[in-house]
Computed example of a mutant assay.
Amino acid sequence: MEPTQNLDAEGITRRQSLAALAGAGALGLAGCTQSTGGSGDDGSGDGSGDDSLSGSINIAGSSTVFPLMSAIAEDFAEDYPDVSIDISSTGSGGGFSNFFCVGETDFNNASRPIQPAEEELCADNGVEYVELIAATDAVTVVVNPEADWVDSLTVEELATIWESDPAQTWDEVRDEFPNEEIERYGAADTSGTYDYFIEAVLGERGHTSDYQATEKDNNIANGVSGSEYGIGYFGFSYYYLNPDQLKALAIDDGDGPVEPSLDTASSGEYTPLSRPLFTYPSIESLGKEHVAEFARYFVEQTTNEDLVAGDVGYVPATEETQEEQMGKLEDAIERAQG
């Protein structure tokens, strides 16, 4: 995958580039193969300058955080071409269980906090980490653009569609809706978005298995855009990157319908589907200077409105949050390298 600046030169915007990456579900930014005076390919560069920082970084986890991490990694690669970064969209839980907590990746992206079973798995394998807040998201419920009969749903109606014993036709949700079968597209059960949706909307009612489940949010977007009576949910970025493909629904949590947006997520109006996003670097990995420098760069970029909001479609961190996260990170780096 070529860096964004090359794509822009061919007339492709940053947002279009990220939308394409979302569809692929993976990003590999290969470092230069020629030595530039660093300590070699073992990832132990001394960080004394761009030419000496080299090594590889492996990242897995949340499909929701994927476009943000991808954008930041591309910008980092411009300054540090000898650092190779591979990012995979595996879902928060899939990333923790299959990669991060068994010591195979340096970072795990997550759209919800690490869960107790994952903490235990990490502990069993000697994997220590630091939790860093990346941005704020608005989980977005989408339907087909031709669905002119629905503009909003209450939280209860949303639960009726997605609970373990769900409504089968739209008129079971609301009398004036059409008598047509509901086609559902959503996050797989290894996804943090799936976990968050249960927590915020469904609770003990559980989540239906009668839906098209995927780890790749772009597949949800494609499914709903091709289904006249389809419905799906995912992070706001995927609607933001595909606004002509989809129609976002306002959600009524008791005070009237509120549309998902950067403003309503930031203000707290968009309830109950606003949430923080995270990344978890491994303490051991932070002992390598190129990983520590990338982690610092990531936290620095979380307040970058042009990138986080403009290019990706999430609410940037506040200066206060960024300062807190950088303090946590520096403590972890000192511990790793001390």
Rank of each mutant, 00 (worst) to 15 (best):
D175C: 08
Y194F: 14
F100K: 00
V150K: 00
E215K: 08
S225D: 12
E104G: 00
N242S: 06
A187V: 05
V130T: 14
D252A: 00
G203W: 06
S92K: 00
S84V: 04
A20D: 04
T160A: 15
D217R: 04
G256W: 02
A24R: 15
V258K: 03
A167E: 11
S48G: 11
A187R: 07
D195K: 01
Q301D: 11
L27Q: 14
L29N: 12
Q168C: 02
T160W: 08
V102G: 02
G313E: 06
K288S: 13
V155T: 15
D51M: 15
Y239N: 10
A221T: 13
P81G: 09
L246V: 09
E320Q: 13
I333P: 00
V312Q: 06
D306V: 11
I220K: 09
E181C: 02
V315E: 03
G313P: 05
R112L: 01
L121G: 10
Y238C: 06
G287S: 07
R112I: 13
A24C: 07
W149T: 13
V139C: 08
Y297Q: 10
V143A: 13
T154I: 01
D75E: 15
G226N: 15
S274Y: 14
E204I: 07
V83N: 02
T214A: 13
E180P: 11
S84G: 10
E119L: 12
G192R: 05
D195L: 08
A188V: 00
G186V: 03
G94T: 09
E334G: 06
D255N: 12
E119C: 05
D124H: 04
P67M: 08
P3V: 00
D306H: 09
G40T: 10
E330H: 02
V142N: 07
E119Y: 01
I231P: 00
D46E: 01
T105H: 03
R335W: 05
D253R: 04
D106I: 09
